[in-house]
Design a protein around this nucleic acid. Structure first.
Lengths: 197, 197
DNA sequence: CCGCGTGATGTAGAAAAGCACATCAAGAAT
DNA sequence: ATTCTTGATGTGCTTTTCTACATCACGCGG
């Protein structure tokens, strides 16, 4: 493990933690096992270039070759852009990655079920509407309803409710402007847990 | 082989050809076989990150992770710096890589010979004095004298003469300022071939 | 036409990544 | 105290890179 790959490994870990993601969150997004991500970040393996690129993409990073004499200027640009940390996305981003993970598990468990496919479709649709602006409580409620769909004899009611919730979120975003809600008291747009035990 | 690694592969090939290097020249510098360099540039393998970094270093490139939103600015910086092509170093640089290759072969053939070790040492010393400013004819004469040292019963006279030539180059550079000689008629500072057959 | 340099491709063997999976220790939350 | 999450580490297997080496086709210079 040499010095140069150590710098890149450190950048990956920093970017992941800045996004509030765990290694298991990243694993679900990228499709690389958590154990392997741990080894890549620690620099105990010499990964393939495609593995590095896959992880970088998920962290909104791009692997580039830069002439050595341009490196100081490039570093200055990177500092000015504030690296990749985005203070408005921590809690919501974490919930999003958990939702992505839960959907991946559902996709694996029941790949041809129409409800799951519609869920995936609507989730992808939501991401185009700047999903991170949704309050984390709303996202958490959505995720918890998704997590109830885990046994093979899945709960159709929970699935339908999740589908409806995603559809409502989509409509809500489609009819309102982008408003960062960092200072507002976080509050779910509607509750999914009215029959919680 | 995906699109992202293809962009990196193309960058490597472009940087190498801009430096006037062949794949065999680069192989001698980096220690990676020519066949593997061909495959990496063509994108037919998914190389290890350390292999990519070794090649990039030899081409005066640095592998970096850049936030995606900073990529346009970084590309602008790279264009302004004129990429990695340096119009003043073509012929001399080519001779330098050939000298390095010849020295590597000598090193392999006779690793413990004192004369070869002194050659390596002096060559490294020369590089600190901006070796590329030396006229290519001088470098070619030096390289040809090195190439005569190829059979196991090496020519001590040629070895000593190479050593002296390098030492004189070193002294010459140490006592004169840096002067790009792009327009000057290229002429060796002294001839190494007075007894050529 | 010949020789040389170059980039590409093939083969075989060694080494390591990648993956699936399990498990652990540590810290935080309940 | 217990449970959960997290990052790290181990094991076994498969796949791929890497290396060494050979060889080829092509283009260029003499």
């Amino acid at each position: 493990m040499n010095y140069a790959t150590q710098a890149i490994a450190a950048s990956l870990r920093e970017a992941r933690t800045a996004k509030g993601m765990s290694q298991r969150d990243l694993s679900a997004l990228v499709g690389v096992p958590q154990a392997q991500i741990s080894r890549i970040e620690a620099g105990t393996v010499d990964p393939r270039v495609t593995s590095l690129i896959a992880i970088a993409n998920a962290l909104d990073l791009e692997l580039t070759l830069v002439p050595r004499k341009a490196v100081p200027a490039v570093k200055s640009i990177v500092r000015q852009s504030g690296g990749q940390a985005d203070p408005t996305r921590g809690p919501s981003q974490k919930e999003i990655t958990r939702i992505a993970e839960t959907l991946s598990r559902l996709q694996v468990a029941m790949p041809n079920l129409d409800g799951v496919m519609r869920l995936q479709k609507t989730f992808a649709d939501l991401q185009r509407f700047q999903l991170p602006t949704i309050e984390p409580e709303t996202l958490r409620a959505l995720r918890k309803s998704l997590e109830r769909i885990e046994v093979p004899s899945f709960q159709i009611e929970a699935l339908t409710r999740s589908q409806d919730a995603m559809q409502k979120l989509r409509n809500q975003l489609a009819h309102q402007p982008f408003v960062p809600s960092q200072d507002a008291s976080p509050r779910p747009a509607y509750s999914l847990d009215e029959d919680d035990a």
